[in-house]
Design a protein around this nucleic acid. Structure first.
Lengths: 209, 209
DNA sequence: CAGGGAATCTAATCCGGGTTAGAATGGTCG
DNA sequence: CGACCATTCTAACCCGGATTAGATTCCCTG
């Protein structure tokens, strides 16, 4: 069942050919999962999207649940890594509010780009059985902390109103941004406009003055 | 299959006894639907929560889908009616910003109160098959219009910044508020605090100055 | 070209869950 | 008390979909 089972002694490349198939299956799963939900995700459908027969999935994943779990985790993980990366690239002297603005920008753009994974994670977070939530939840926790740190630093620096409850505000903001996948339509609105408005919500909603 | 099939000529009360059972089933469906999702909602589970055997459900609902559809609709409908009611009770001279504040308050408190229905509608909006979305979507549209009107009036009155994209802002706000059911825990945070912070988000995020 | 493992397929198993059929219960009204 | 209708139950049907078994195909290497 294991494509990556190249005994540590001999291999360098994880067989690119089959790695691609695995990736196709994962992408297909993200798509189906986002549209049909956890219980509604049938391996037959995933297989069809991935241009493969259902049992082929078992060559790469031990079970339907394992496949779903991976999708949920990948979505959360990629967004976090991307935002961290973008923040890290910022000059040392960037203001805390600037960092928040950049984080909002990075989150929204990347989330909409990975939309199948993002939508899958977001819509199904509350539906998948407990066991499947462990890794994704850990990922969520890390991401939460990232945002908490941004807000705490900004508030301590006096760039966010002292009387604002930054924990609640942060959760509201993440909700607003997560929900975007539910209504966003690239054809009717410009992405720049969305980002700008979300930034306004933070700059004016949380900022001083 | 129809409890309410009292020929128009003869009946006054829709048999309270059985109406209660129907209500129990609906409530149970909301709970299961919110936890397990559309495809994961088994009639056996709904029946168990409603303290009834699964086939009894068919006495009140033609099919599983019809039951689900009703839950999704009730959630959206009740919230809208409640917000409309609260707004209507406001004095004529309330400012537009006041109206927005009241709407935020009413939406959040009522949504958290109806949480099973709200969570069910919110989490499953994107998962239920097209046919089931008709009535709920119409409800959503009405609710959307309500908020759009509030924002348009506020902006025209100069109580909301002229350069703000109120359509995007409104969708972000509704997302933030909808998402609350995903993280809200009455034991760790006070409802008043939540409402106040969400109001801040609008007052400062959208308001002038 | 032969052998062998990787990758994928077809066919079969098996169970869960919606739905239907038909009986039992229980209260109400004549 | 007895008939009737509303309500709910038990038993059975049936199908869809995950998973497994056992070929089969496809490369790559010797």
């Amino acid at each position: 069942m294991v494509a990556m089972n190249t005994t540590a002694t001999e291999s360098t490349s994880p067989t690119p050919k089959s790695a691609l198939t695995r990736q196709r299956i994962l992408d297909a799963a993200a798509e189906v999962l986002s549209r049909k939900g956890y219980a509604g995700t049938r391996l037959v459908d995933v297989a069809a999207v991935a241009r493969v027969q259902a049992p082929a999935i078992y060559y790469y994943f031990a079970s339907r649940d394992e496949l779903v779990e991976e999708v949920m985790w990948v979505g959360a993980n990629r967004v976090r890594l991307h935002v961290e990366e973008v923040l890290a690239a910022l000059p040392e002297d960037a203001s805390h509010m600037d960092r928040l603005m950049v984080a909002v920008d990075a989150h929204l753009r990347y989330e909409l780009q990975l939309s199948d994974y993002a939508t899958a994670s977001i819509r199904n977070a509350g539906h998948v059985p407990e066991q499947l939530r462990v890794r994704p939840a850990a990922e969520e926790a890390l991401y939460s902390r990232l945002w908490r740190d941004l807000f705490v630093a900004a508030q301590q620096a006096g760039e966010v109103r002292a009387d604002l409850d930054i924990n609640v505000f942060r959760l509201l903001l993440l909700g607003a941004m997560n929900w975007v996948v539910e209504w966003w339509n690239p054809r009717t609105r410009s992405l720049d406009e969305l980002v700008a408005t979300a930034q306004d919500m933070v700059r004016h909603g949380a900022g001083v003055g």
